[in-house]
């Protein structure tokens, strides 16, 4: 196993800097197993034969951009273009391979709603667990508890196991917890793509309320949302930024991809 390179990810708190996030020459590749190299036997076998057993898949190539404080940035691109990888690196889930990332302030990622939700636990227990993942203590959750259920409109299901919730109900509960998170930078990965019309309405109101107050990075396939909420948008294609600027222009360029 050759040693893998690791880039830099810093979390700082600089009040005088105009930027919330700075990304410099970020690259990332994944190691994908070429043949079945899952397991010790195959690993030893591969090594004896001098086979690497994996292939480096470039996902991001030299990506650089800055996000100003208070900016609402949209990131678009087709499936597999590297958007989600970029978000995961910004969130500190993946390590950058090359390049440098500076996060200025506290960052709250929503790669997915309801992380850690467990079907065998009750709604109540899940709320506290999910809250802990967002950094809230039991006491802090107590204070928000009623509001969370009221917003989700699920008060009467608190003590039911989560497996008895419909998927829409789960999403509503998760969203209701997620919006309590406090941070100056929010990262959202397609959380708008779920729920019924009423729920979408709630999401939209929430995003509208964030605009101008917080730094938000939103990954989405909805060009309508890009035009409605974003101050700026970035399009990623094949791991590179191909357009950076006005949301309308980026949305048009994106639509051209599918013509």
């Amino acid at each position: 196993m050759s040693k893998r390179k690791i880039g830099i990810r810093k979390e700082v708190l600089l009040l005088d800097s105009p930027y919330a996030i700075e990304v410099k020459k970020l690259s990332k590749s994944f190691r994908l197993p070429t043949e079945r190299s899952w397991g010790l036997k195959q690993a030893i076998f591969n090594r004896l034969r001098g086979i690497k057993g994996y292939k480096d898949q470039k996902v991001l190539r030299d990506v650089s951009f800055n996000v100003k404080k208070g900016e609402f940035l949209g990131i678009v691109g087709r499936n597999g273009s590297g958007k989600s990888t970029l978000l995961k690196i910004l969130s500190g889930i993946y390590y950058p391979e090359k390049g440098e990332i500076t996060v200025n302030g506290s960052l709250v990622p929503f790669i997915e709603l309801g992380v850690g939700f467990n079907p065998e636990l009750t709604g109540r227990e899940n709320v506290y667990l999910n809250g802990a993942l967002l950094g809230f203590s039991h006491k802090e959750m107590d204070a928000m508890y009623e509001d969370i259920w009221k917003f989700a409109e699920l008060e009467q299901f608190q003590d039911q196991k989560l497996k008895n919730y419909s998927s829409g109900m789960q999403v509503r509960l998760a969203f209701s917890i997620a919006i309590r998170a406090k941070g100056n930078i929010l990262i959202l990965d397609e959380v708008l793509a779920v729920g019924d019309a009423a729920f979408q309405q709630k999401c939209n109101e929430y995003f509208a309320s964030l605009k101008g107050k917080q730094t938000v990075i939103l990954v989405t396939h909805s060009m309508e949302n890009v035009k409605k909420f974003c101050d700026r948008a970035i399009m990623i294609e094949d791991g590179k930024i191909v357009q950076d600027g006005d949301p309308k222009e980026v949305a048009e360029k994106y639509m051209e991809l599918f013509k």
Binding site: S91, G92, I93, P109, I111, E112, V115, G116, L133
Partner: peptide, 8 residues
């Protein structure tokens, strides 16, 4: 699931 979705 936690490892894939949250940084801690």
């Amino acid at each position: 699931d936690l490892i894939r979705k949250v940084s801690f």
